[in-house]
Design a protein around this nucleic acid. Structure first.
Lengths: 168, 168
DNA sequence: TTTATTTTAGTTGTGTGCAATTAAATTGTG
DNA sequence: CACAATTTAATTGCACACAACTAAAATAAA
């Protein structure tokens, strides 16, 4: 029996209590956030993961060049199994175009269309709308974002470490 | 044009910058957490959402009574569209049983089986394993959990407010 | 240069999430 | 009591996530 478990039993506490677990707090907050975005993105007709792809494309300085599916995946930590059908839907919506690279035809470049660029103007007010809904101090928000990014890095690091240790 | 957008343009900043957005920090952290749990739960043979259901069942003081699908949904903020197939899989795995209520046959009570109860012993060390991986101060962790829960509450509240305002 | 390895995007299959609908049972109301 | 409205769980359909696999192309090695 592990130390925390023993300690929890002695103190008559449940070591598995749902509301004290960070995992559930994250899971709940992330789903609540996505649900909020569902409303905010209704006018654009896209889902939250599709919005993330558009954010990356809009962030590109040289929009004409586009970005490869691989680089998009690195940025969002998503693989082609998720991105391929998602990009296909964004293409059908008219927000992006896909084209195989001439130099290296394994790669596919994703670019925003004129419609996709126009949509950016509508999206630029989304963060403010959300900020008003959340009622959170900008400093606290920045700190929370930093905390979460560093947590994510540690979790991803340990995933790799665990995978390496178990040889998978 | 909204104030923040104008301000960002004047200061030559991108108001849509991915890495400063709380939504993406939450989305990334939540997925990284789920990925970490995938490894931790491999020995139990269940997914992370299935683990959440087991946490609720284990939390019940009177395990023999079980909990209705509705109450489970309230606790985890999941509807029957998600829970029904998930519970069906947990039932196939032998961790839970389902039985329609005799008093009100609309309701279905979910209970842990002997195997489900036994699995709890294995699960009780998971939080400590995770804590070691995360390397986070217990006080900071508790604060982060509180911050996230309060954020979730505010987001859920605004969802309802927005839905009410738009009449949906 | 020929072959083996690696890289890249796409496809398939499984398990969530969630909206919308269905079906059955209960409750409320006249 | 009869009938309308509500409640509950399940089902259907769509869009992620992610593991495992495939196919094509580029690179490295022999």
């Amino acid at each position: 029996m592990c130390a925390i478990k023993l300690c929890a039993i002695i103190m008559d506490m449940n070591p598995l209590e749902l509301d004290r677990q960070l995992c559930f707090a994250l899971y709940s907050a992330s789903r609540a956030m996505t649900a909020t975005y569902r409303g905010l993105l209704k006018q654009l007709g896209i889902t939250y993961p599709q919005y993330l792809v558009m954010l990356v494309l809009w962030e590109q300085n040289r929009e004409a060049e586009g970005i490869t599916v691989k680089d998009l995946g690195t940025r969002l930590q998503l693989d082609s199994g998720t991105l391929s059908p998602l990009l296909s839907r964004l293409e059908t919506l008219g927000y992006v175009s896909r084209e195989r690279s001439a130099e290296d035809s394994r790669q596919v470049f994703v670019r925003t269309t004129a419609e996709g660029i126009a949509a950016r103007a509508h999206a630029e007010c989304v963060p403010q709308e959300l900020g008003e809904l959340m009622q959170i101090d900008p400093g606290d928000l920045a700190e929370l974002v930093d905390t979460l990014h560093s947590l994510t890095d540690r979790l991803r690091g340990t995933d790799e470490a665990t995978a390496a240790a178990t040889g998978t």
